[in-house]
Nucleic acid binder design. Structure first.
Lengths: 196, 196
DNA sequence: TGACGCATGTAACCTGTTACATGATTTA
DNA sequence: TAAATCATGTAACAGGTTACATGCGTCA
């Protein structure tokens, strides 16, 4: 038997935090504090269609005066139920694949040639990510959530922060160990995620 | 165009750290310090076959007096070359999926019922993982590697340690935040990976 | 006018998991 | 003697990525 997709649950969960379009859902999982999950368009749109057919979500076309068409999806009571039964299941699986780290692990002269750049890019991304995280954290506080909801979100938000901080620290230590000065190159501002 | 598999490179890389059987390779990626990568049997064996056909690895049947049959694979010069060209490519992709963290993020009463257990199990796994990491770290020192090789492996080993420590800290803080006493339950010794 | 962000979607196609099948050896 | 570990492998099947296609609105 092949594996069971978690994508429908992830989408249901995202919708439990408010109605969203496919695009919104994609953005939701792109946020820095969601580094522990990813979804791609190719999964989101077909899954949304499937969930609609199963009656777990409802759709409404946003007829705003401006901007392109938006199909906004909402969780139905049935969807809520399915989400809850998934949340209750205790067996969880996880998978991690960090190609850059793998290459570093196999470190050979080929890697060293670009080590400086790789680590510096990573450092930049991480520190940008931390900045974004602070913004996301503040936005969350303004969301008018119940005490309990806020506690859960703060818990995972906190994990994201600790992860970014730890990786940034590791990055800086590694740069130091390889005798590389941080200030040796001009840094260009470029927003690019290491995700996907 | 579909994505390109990293599995052949991961296997080539593993073999660059010494000859291995399919089983050995599986164990290699199960190690705690390799938390940032995973491979399953269903990929390893067929890929090994493919690499053999392409001449990137060689096989030799281990005719030991005891134990089941072992097919030990070795990297060929061609395999080494392919590995190196992959290491040189600078664009790396990564994906993370941590189902438990996702559930926690969507935190609802359903999650809270098991929150104590989930966090305590996680804490146990992480602290076991840290212990294993120390052992793996010592084993590495005894491996008689060149200065350079050692530096790379220490670098990623260090990341694994920092990751485990950060997650453990997060786990303990979360337990505290939810007003849960660590000593409230007997802990059973049970080695089970959260991977895969 | 061109780039960029918003927005929806599909097709192709490989990737990767999981369950199954099998058996030897060691350890309690 | 039963369970755990070592060991190799395959089949089935869904899962998931990426490139492609398309178009509006805004801002420089």
């Amino acid at each position: 038997m092949p594996r069971k997709s978690r994508t429908p649950y992830a989408i249901l969960g995202a919708l439990s935090h408010g109605p969203k379009s496919g695009y919104d859902i994609s953005c939701y999982f792109e946020k820095d504090h969601m580094f522990f999950w990813n979804e791609s368009y190719g999964q989101i749109y077909p899954t949304l269609k499937k969930l609609l057919k199963e009656g777990l979500v409802e759709v409404e076309v946003d007829t705003r005066t401006q901007g392109p068409e938006r199909k906004v999806y909402t969780l139905t009571p049935e969807g809520q139920e399915v989400l809850q039964s998934w949340l209750t299941e205790t067996d969880c699986k996880s998978s991690f694949r960090d190609e850059l780290m793998l290459k570093l692990h196999f470190g050979m002269p080929e890697v060293q040639k670009n080590l400086l750049d790789r680590l510096q890019n990573m450092e930049k991304e991480l520190s940008d990510g931390l900045d974004a995280l602070l913004v996301e954290s503040e936005q969350m506080e303004e969301l008018d959530l119940s005490k309990e909801e806020l506690a859960y979100r703060k818990m995972t938000m906190n994990w994201s922060k600790m992860f970014y901080e730890a990786k940034l620290r590791w990055c800086q230590e590694s740069l130091k160990d390889f005798g590389i000065k941080k200030s040796s190159k001009k840094k260009k501002k470029k927003k690019k995620k290491n995700k996907s």
